[in-house]
Design a protein around this nucleic acid. Structure first.
Length: 1049
RNA sequence: ACCCGGGUGGUGGAACUGGUAGACACGCAGGACUUAAAAUCCUGUUCGCAGUAAUGCGAGUGACGGUUCAAUUCCGUUCCCGGGUACCA
């Protein structure tokens, strides 16, 4: 008998499912579990519309193999799967097609699950989670509230309830105010101060703003300063945003790396991302009226403008800092990063440097264009130039600003500062290579020691001071620390390495500045002006952010008709006034965080939809009708039950004065199965009236004809699923309206609260999902402490390097916060990380010929094989020769005999990799491709074959280089597919996908099968004696499953 | 631009601490079985040159240079490809 993988795999899957072989149980409370635990986790996928491609399963297969191994070794293995189902693509798709993200997401997940199941993974689907499910994001919101209600204590280096801080302020005050002052502050003032300490806080930050689209764009969506869609100009705009104070955890995130087993490359990337550096922050005082001749006489590149500003003017324009909290005292933690203010008493420019030893080599200062001081210090003469420059910079993304270093840009402000040690005059410039977000947003430029400073000085003809003698050759900068300092005042003759400490000490002594540890990492932006994400459980009232109570969670995402941005570029939620406006939230007060609160039971009671029964008669009537059903009704009824929709449908249920065929009360959805008579005009009118009345009482009605139900059951079912999703969201919306919003048009002033209309970013849900798998059904808490103590850290975490910094840092931070709050017992979520390599797509190309001038008007498409194309490209093939070949396959392709004027173009076109075998095009399949667009195509072959060109690119639908695992599994079976993926090479390695070669693996499995299958006895040999009527295979749990061999002999 | 990977036959890859480069597999070629094909089995297969052949000689791990008795491996420079760079997930 042949190796019948279909039957074998089907049998296995069925048995696994029927016996719930992969169901994983948690230990019973108070009992010792007899098996040791092992937690194998995959990075869960974003369910994209393109479905699973062959890159996804690589890591999943590896972890699956490992899970099975561990299970056989006697461990209780947790190996779950779920979906990271919030995100931009679904929303983008919704904007384009009008389909609700909930619907498309649901559909995509179904596809993914079906695909995953075919590959035969041992997941316990009972533990599946979806980040977009309210029962899940309820807890995402809840954790956000913990972040909001706690602050980072610098003495204990951990998160503590903000109530403790309030207590401290009330009794002792702080470095900035006394307890009495605190008490005298208004509520708003106090809240503003507290906001500067919360782990989740709100502040103003810059976003990419596209006026034409009226929306905020991701960096990805901005190309060369214009929007990717439509090419509209994009500028920076300040908007209120939410942030996570991840910078407070920088040191602990660094230390934590020592305790986990990640690859060195991964740790290195995270360290670089955090970018801890030690140096000094110091102040260069401004010189109100410099005499440029002293330092700059006759230099080119400077505008000749004299600074007109006098001292009085200057100090006035610099102003005084009215808001104490804007100062950068450490007690107040990091200043809100994106709006870093670097001023100090209005005296000068605060710069950060890691090389204070080079202080005497400073030839100019450079401010970030966004720097607060820019507008204040610019001299009248430079104003126009600076303004032009700022306009230019506004249109450029951070990445562009860093990437194009060859293109040096900058502008002189006209102002000068003094070197704090020798008083040397230093011009102040602005340039895009200095980023506002890093350090103080201002640098001291040392051209002889820093390449970028050097290039800048050369470009603008700024004289360069050499402080490192022969180490500097005048041609390029030298960043050495081994030089002996010259021209460096009190540092002269010192080795730079040693001078660093000396310089810092001196700087501190003289009060010029202080030692400072700096991080490249910024606080994490946590709000998005988008729809498809977790809504913030926050209400704004009089400028104060008020958290919802835990009992009010989840705050469900309301239904929207349109996904466009709000009036001021807010998220789409801002358009739903009835959702956004909340009457009198004044009684709300923020409660202290306590464990009790965490355990408060969720608001459970299901909201009962509005319906009433007219008379008992109707019930009797309905009962009777239930017995007389049509074929279509019966089929649909069976299907609705079989589909496990997790909702309860009733048949022939009376609503108002009607009896509905099928009804789901929870979702307020009615499904009608109509016979042929519904086609009549009279009946139609009646049906419409009926629909209208049912709609009025809050039900959605969808109708199908009996014919549809019988002949296209699947699409009927999927329409029902879709309707369930939408009606559910709509119903929630209704409830929101009726329960929380009682006035139809509330006065939008005093006492009104406004919901936060931003939503959380994609990484919110994925920052803690590994905890939810442990206890996915818990309605009391995000994860029971006993359960998380048992499963503890993820033992092996498998996923791609693309998440090296983002996701992995965020989830590590969340774990640390939850640990600080004593909600979990470990502060590193992942013990070991394995990075699977990326599977790139391997694209294939065909080459289409067109002849201009003398060609046939409507020729059949013609394609030339790769090597001939290559010869043509390299000018090794004459026009005559090519034309001859063209004639040989199609003698009317070129019409005129006057070939002198012919012009030949050959275009490279992506072709679906699935119709190419290796590099050889399957011509028949190609003709059928794209609905027969190339049905009558002609081909110029080489050696009787059409050879395609190839290139390695990212796997993407538009490049036709995605390979769907389904096809491979159907053709060769899951075992072959899994084995082939593992045979591609080490999991950690990136490699382009190529399907050729899978045959070999399949052949191997067939050989293996033959080795154990006895042709004559028709049985599989087990490790024990051969049996005649059974074949055996060990189940993953160790027992031996037996199955009668029904194999054909 | 910066950070992190990677580059070895026609292909995927192997070579563990510097010690016979190309394991294993795909593909290809030849052969056996077969009326034939498929399947299966056997043999060969880095490239170039010479030889009927066994075999011999030379080159060879992106490129250039260095350290070493010896380099895919260590060092320097450089080119190319992939990932990340904070609103793609």
């Amino acid at each position: 008998m042949e190796y019948d993988f279909r039957k074998i795999e089907e049998d296995c899957r069925k048995k696994w499912k029927d016996d719930e072989v992969y169901k994983v149980s948690n230990p019973e409370p108070g009992k010792e579990f007899d098996k040791p635990k092992y937690y194998v986790l995959d990075m869960f996928p974003y369910p994209s519309g393109a479905g699973l491609h062959v890159g996804h399963p690589l890591g999943y297969i590896a972890s699956d193999i490992y899970s099975r191994y561990k299970r056989l070794k006697g461990f209780n293995v947790l190996h779950p799967m779920g979906f990271d189902s919030f995100g931009l693509p679904a929303e983008q798709y919704a904007i384009e097609t009008g389909q609700h993200p909930a619907t498309t997401t649901e559909k995509n997940i179904e596809t993914f699950k079906a695909q995953l199941d075919k590959i035969g993974f041992c997941y316990d689907w009972g533990r599946e989670i979806r980040t977009s499910d309210p029962s899940y994001y309820k807890w995402t919101q809840w954790i956000f509230l913990q972040l909001f209600k706690n602050y980072f204590c610098h003495t204990q280096k951990k998160a503590l309830p903000i109530s403790l801080l309030v207590e401290k302020y009330e009794t002792k005050g702080s470095a900035h105010f006394t307890a009495e002052e605190w008490k005298s502050f208004t509520k708003k003032e106090r809240e503003d101060i507290l906001m500067k300490r919360r782990l989740a806080f709100s502040a103003y930050g810059e976003v990419n703003w596209c006026e034409a689209l009226g929306t905020v764009l991701a960096n990805d969506e901005v190309v060369n300063g214009v929007s990717e869609r439509g090419g509209h100009p994009v500028v920076k705009k300040k908007m209120r945003q939410w942030y996570l104070r991840i910078t407070e955890y920088a040191d602990r995130l660094l230390e934590g790396l020592e305790t986990v087993s990640f690859s060195d490359a991964m740790k290195e990337m995270q360290r670089n991302w955090i970018g801890k550096s030690e140096g000094a922050e110091m102040i260069f005082s401004l010189i109100p009226s410099p005499s440029p001749s002293r330092h700059l006489s006759g230099e080119k590149g400077f505008t000749e403008t004299e600074t007109k500003m006098d001292a009085e003017n200057l100090s006035q324009s610099l102003g005084t800092q009215s808001d104490k909290e804007n100062s950068t005292d450490t007690d107040l933690g990091h200043p809100s990063r994106p709006i870093n203010v670097m001023m100090d008493e209005g005296q000068g420019v605060r710069v950060y440097t890691t090389r204070p030893d080079t202080i005497f080599g400073v030839d100019f200062l450079v401010l970030a264009p966004e720097h607060e001081l820019v507008s204040k210090i610019t001299t009248d003469g430079q104003k126009q130039e600076i303004e032009n420059y700022l306009t230019y910079v506004k249109s450029r993304s951070d990445r562009e600003r860093m990437a194009e270093v060859k293109q040096i840009t900058g502008c002189f402000t006209g102002a000068y500062a003094a070197n704090p040690f020798d008083g040397k005059l230093i011009p102040i410039w602005i340039a895009e290579y200095v980023l506002a977000g890093y350090g103080t947003g201002a640098i001291m430029a040392v051209p002889c020691g820093d390449q970028r400073d050097f290039a800048f000085a050369k470009h603008f003809n700024i004289p360069i001071t050499n402080i490192i003698g022969h180490h500097y050759n005048g041609q390029e900068a030298n960043a050495t620390k081994d030089a002996v300092l010259q021209n460096s005042g009190f540092l002269n003759g010192m080795l730079m390495k040693d001078a660093i400490a000396v310089a810092i000490n001196k700087i501190e002594e003289e009060g010029i500045g202080k030692r400072k540890v700096n991080y490249r990492m910024r606080d994490a932006g946590f709000s998005r002006q988008r729809y498809w994400g977790e809504p913030f459980p926050i209400i704004w009232s009089d400028g104060i952010a008020l958290p919802l109570d835990a009992e009010e969670l989840p705050l469900e995402l309301p239904f929207v008709e349109k996904y466009g941005p709000g009036p001021e570029g807010e998220g789409p939620l801002a358009n739903i006034k009835e959702w956004t406006l909340i009457p009198s939230p004044s009684p709300r007060v923020e409660k202290g965080v306590s464990k009790n609160e965490a355990e408060i039971e969720a608001k459970g009671a299901a909201l009962v939809p509005k319906y009433k029964v007219r008379s008992p008669m109707q019930y009797e009537l309905a009962k009777g009708m239930r017995k007389e059903y049509t074929e279509a009704e019966n089929l649909l009824w069976q299907q609705l039950r079989d589909q496990k929709l997790n909702v309860k449908f009733r048949r022939q249920h009376p609503i108002e004065c009607y009896i509905a065929d099928f009804i789901c009360l929870d979702h307020a959805l009615i499904v009608e199965a109509d016979g042929g008579y519904h086609e009549s005009e009279e009946q139609k009118k009646y049906d419409e009236e009926r629909n209208r009345i049912l709609n009025e009482v809050g039900f959605t009605v969808i109708r199908f004809t009996n014919y549809e139900i019988l002949n296209d059951t699947q699409s009927v079912l999927s329409k029902i699923k879709e309707a369930l999703q939408i009606s559910r969201i709509r119903r929630n919306n209704e409830n929101t309206k009726s329960s929380e919003f009682s006035h139809p048009s509330p006065p939008a002033d005093e006492g009104m609260g406004v919901r936060e209309t931003s939503t959380m970013p994609g990484y919110a849900g994925s920052s803690w999902y590994f905890l939810r798998y442990m206890d996915p059904k818990n309605t009391e808490t995000f994860c029971d402490r006993n359960v998380s103590d048992y499963w503890n850290q993820v033992d092996v975490y498998i996923g791609g390097t693309e998440h090296a910094v983002g996701h992995l840092l965020y989830s590590r931070m969340w774990a640390k916060v939850l640990y600080d709050l004593n909600l979990i017992g470990f502060d590193e979520p992942f013990k070991k990380l394995v990075n699977q390599g990326m599977i790139q797509g391997s694209s294939r190309f065909v080459y289409r010929i067109s002849v201009l001038n003398v060609g046939n008007d409507k020729p059949s498409p013609m394609f030339v094989s790769f090597n001939i194309y290559k010869e043509w490209l390299e000018n090794k093939l004459s026009m005559r020769n090519l034309l001859d070949r063209i004639f040989s396959v199609d003698d009317v392709f070129v019409t005129s005999m006057n070939l002198e004027s012919a012009e030949i173009m050959i275009n490279q076109i992506h072709v679906d990799v699935n119709i190419v075998d290796g590099v050889e095009l399957n011509i028949e399949a190609f003709k059928k491709w794209k609905n027969g667009e190339f049905l009558d195509a002609k081909f110029i072959l080489e050696d009787g074959k059409y050879i395609c060109g190839s290139e390695t690119e990212k796997m993407s639908k538009s490049k036709y280089n995605t390979v769907n695992p389904d096809d491979l599994v159907n053709k060769y079976g899951a075992d072959t597919f899994r084995m082939y993926e593992m045979f591609l090479g080490p999991v950690e390695q990136s490699k382009p996908w190529d399907t050729k070669g899978i045959e070999g693996v399949h052949r191997f499995l067939r050989k293996l099968w033959r080795l154990f299958y006895d042709e004559h006895k028709g049985a599989i040999w087990t490790t024990s004696a051969p049996r005649n009527d059974h074949y055996k295979f060990p189940s993953p749990l160790g027992e031996v499953a037996q199955r009668a061999d029904e194999g054909e002999r």
